[in-house]
Design a protein around this nucleic acid. Structure first.
Length: 291
DNA sequence: CGATTCCCCTGATAGC
DNA sequence: TGCTATCAGGGGAATC
């Protein structure tokens, strides 16, 4: 699922592709993805004739800055991903004109929103579960929307002291839940919280107040290392996430626990366990992750 | 107010 | 074979 490394990969790829392009048309078959403006006709008017000036990431949000001064915000949620290519409609179905993953991988076939550029290229949102969120905001509305988010974990000035200060806002919380709390730190989800805690050798249910200074440091270090590693790999490949090219990321080579229930821990050989924490799966090694 | 539960959605998978 | 029940899960709303 798209977390910080996947969203970062997406915006880096897109920057190579769609900057300066002019929008000429927009299509959707799922209007409920578009949260505002509520009416699709107005949403479309806000896009057509505009140019893409810049693309940024904040937490798990993709921010596309338009020449009108407004911003197109896309949150991919669980199964959404942006694709860059050319499609044509054949018998009510969008068929990719580009060979490779874009046309063969079934995950790339759930197109629910397409933005058409003047030069014939297209930006599409593929989303099996239709949970993604798309909206156009003014800069003020954007600021308000992002105000709740915690700091960026990879910012240079997000020091260990700041990390500790953020985490300790949830003293009673379980560390996995706290790492995934977007108000505490932005961008970490289910996959990377598991991977971070495995690397730091900390049990996901451990309460924040019970973490030693040394353990907090291990989590901080693992967080930076894993997120950077995942970005350099181009994101994960275990879920529906795909890069704008339609291809999977390469993080699978480094994945240690997520979705490895019953398999051997790469560190100690014990069987990886899965438990539920707040409706979500948590994978961990019951032997080398200390509670 | 904080913590928990429900809900959005649909392909994959298990069970019969 | 084919049907039905269950599951996955980010985040916002509803509820405890």
């Amino acid at each position: 699922m798209p977390e910080l490394p996947e969203v970062e990969t997406t915006i880096r790829d897109l920057k190579e592709k769609i900057l300066k392009k002019s929008i000429v048309d927009v299509w959707t078959d799922t209007k409920k993805l578009i949260k505002r403006p509520k009416k699709f006709k107005i949403f479309k008017e806000e896009l057509v004739g505009k140019e893409i000036l810049d693309i940024k990431r904040r937490g798990k949000n993709i921010l596309i800055f338009l020449s009108s001064g407004k911003v197109l915000l896309i949150h991919q949620k669980l199964t959404g991903h942006l694709l860059f290519g050319k499609w044509e409609k054949i018998n009510k179905e969008w068929v990719s004109k580009i060979a490779g993953a874009l046309s063969t991988d079934p995950t790339n076939k759930f197109l629910h929103l397409i933005i058409f550029f003047k030069d014939g290229w297209q930006l599409a949102l593929s989303d099996l579960r239709k949970f993604a969120k798309v909206e156009i905001l003014t800069k003020e509305e954007l600021e308000k929307e992002l105000a709740k988010l915690g700091p960026e974990p990879l910012d240079k000035d997000f020091t260990f002291e700041k990390f500790r200060e953020r985490i300790l806002k949830r003293k009673k919380g379980k560390i996995k839940q706290v790492l995934m709390d977007q108000e505490i730190i932005a961008g970490i989800g289910n996959i990377y919280s598991d991977e971070i805690l495995w690397k730091a050798k900390i049990h996901p249910l451990k309460r924040v107040k019970d973490l030693s200074e040394g353990e907090l440091k291990e989590i901080y270090k693992a967080m930076k290392e894993i997120l950077l590693k995942a970005i350099s790999a181009g994101g994960e490949s275990i879920s529906d996430y795909r890069r704008p090219s339609g291809e999977k990321g390469g993080f699978d080579a480094f994945r240690k626990v997520y979705r490895r229930e019953g398999e051997k821990c790469f560190r100690c050989g014990s069987k990886i366990k899965r438990i539920k924490i707040a409706q979500r799966s948590a994978y961990f090694c019951p032997v080398c992750q200390k509670s």
